[in-house]
Design a protein around this nucleic acid. Sequence first.
DNA 1: TTAGCGGGCGCG
DNA 2: AAAGCGCGCCCGCTAA
Length: 651
Amino acid sequence: MQWNINIPTAEYYDVQEIPGRTTGPIEHLIRALEDAKEIAIDTETTGLVRWKDMPLYWSVAWGNRRATVHARTLPLFRSVFQDRSKRWLLADAKYDMHILANVGVILEGPVVDIQVMHALLYEDRPHGLKGIASHILGWTWSDFQDTFGKISVKQNAEALIRRAEAENFNLLIEYAANDAWGTLEGGRQLKIQLEKVYTNSLFSVLPPYINTLWDLFDKTEVPYTKVLWECERNGILIDQEYLQRIAPTASAEIDDLARSIVHETGGKVMNPNSGQQLINYFTSIGAPLTKMTKGGVSGIRKTAIDATVLDFLSVSHPVAAKTKRFRELTKLKGTYIDGLDEVKDPFNRIHTRFNQDVARTGRLSSSGPNLQNIPRADNDKWKLRGAFIAPPGHKLIVADYEQLEMRLLADGSREEGMCDVIRRGWDIHMGNAAMIYGVPYDDISVAKKTEKKVKSGELPESAMTEYMKQCLIFRAEVKTIGFGLVYGMGDGKLARDLGITKKEATEKSKHFMEKYPAIKSFKEEMLKDATEYGCVFTIMGRRRSLPGIHSYDRGDRSKAERIAVNTPIQGSAADVVRVAQLHCWSAGLDARYGARMLLQVHDELVFECPDENVEECKAEIKEYMEHPFAVELSVPLGVDINSGASWLAAK
DNA sequence: TTAGCGGGCGCG
DNA sequence: AAAGCGCGCCCGCTAA
């Protein structure tokens, strides 16, 4: 096969020369790498578990050479790995960094993840090494499975590689060296491409040193990879006994509920988690099922039986209420109680992956397990956040941005009314309601407080006056409209959410826009960018292209328009948090306080800190988070920061 | 047994 | 005419 890139011969090295196998003495490779400034590196490992698995082979590419090397040589390359002036190129960098760290190897220089580079340029394409190679280099080679065979229970990665070692060693050398060469060449091309893309920001704070996507990548994404690697490496401690205590209770409760449902439906529903059985049952008793699902990729719409439908049916059918409860409990049990238990390390710590190249907006995603969707206390009878704890002598510090997206909307639009609300330190939704309906802020505030006291039984129902109720309706309306406009909500959905007619909803959103005209202009500006340039920008100059914006399909076009409004807000929030994390990291909180960053949950950071340093550390984190940029935004950023023995207690 | 899909639902 | 954004995981179901 002829490829349109040059592929040098794969060299092989081991601790000592092996006639007919190695290419030369290992010292030659050490010397060559000592001279190299830019090196791609990859590992072949015993498996995919990042806190446990070990390297078997590693491969490197630099200049116009590539080599595969036995893992036992790694200690000999100390001088190479410790050289801070070297740039390392990797694909899925954090994975290999974990594997290397498992044998004591730390890459001290900057680590460049070509998957993140690719994600900045081509949001809608696959960012895996093989995907990048075929897309950017026009080069494909046989993947792990085609080279070594399928990983199964009986044949794990190590067994497969050992077999190749014995049976077809050259194939192994070739495969490993391909990965490194593809990474090096892909990285070189992507750098050239990133340098060509000039970027922009609607907001005023884009630092002068960011002109192109390469600048954005080099200044923020590259150091961020290491920050995230440390978060992953640290992991978060789990209270093992806590989980063990609630697991049987949960099982028993679920079983009871299931039995009761089977009984009440006369045995027609054997498994309340089966949508089909539920649909059959409710149809058989003549219950109305009108809602349809979206239909997934195929677009085939089916009868929906989700929480909204079950709520509706609950009024006349107790089975529906029980089914909903059953779903909630099995979700908690399966995903969070059993799920977390299965992935903890021997020290009861859980290591999520923070994916830097997944979300189209520039947000992180978290997986294996996802620690960004742990239930909140108000939605979880077992208080699972209480199972995430600090070790003895430590506290968890939890820092939350207050209304970050709304504040960025205020800054981006320069809507004076909204900026004013924020500068006064008002609650954003109450303040907006006051501005838009011309009601005194204090009245709404009093109404909210009274409502709270009535709910807790401290005050009688009669304490709520009609006027107070009206104030709260104003607040609820403005809150829904506010969130809705960030997501591009239509009036139909707004009407449904507020329980009013569509005509009324249209009136209300019109009224909102009349009072906050700059918000309207902001939306129009984003749509203009999208139409003219085919992309929108975030505060740090991240781009998202919108191919659907000129689609002839009205649905696709509308979707692109909603994205055009949402991405600058959601993506800018992600940028702010990212920059704050970089500040926290470069401030050396670990060295000075023994404080470690553990989690990022979009607008929230979680740290672990020795008791005696908690207050000082909190003050510093708050400062970094509230002032991420050299230039101040047009509104202040607010951070709510707390500490406690657990994630639950620190809220 | 395994893989992929759709529905549903947890979070921000 | 109607249309909310961004994720990942569990479960049931079907096909291979």
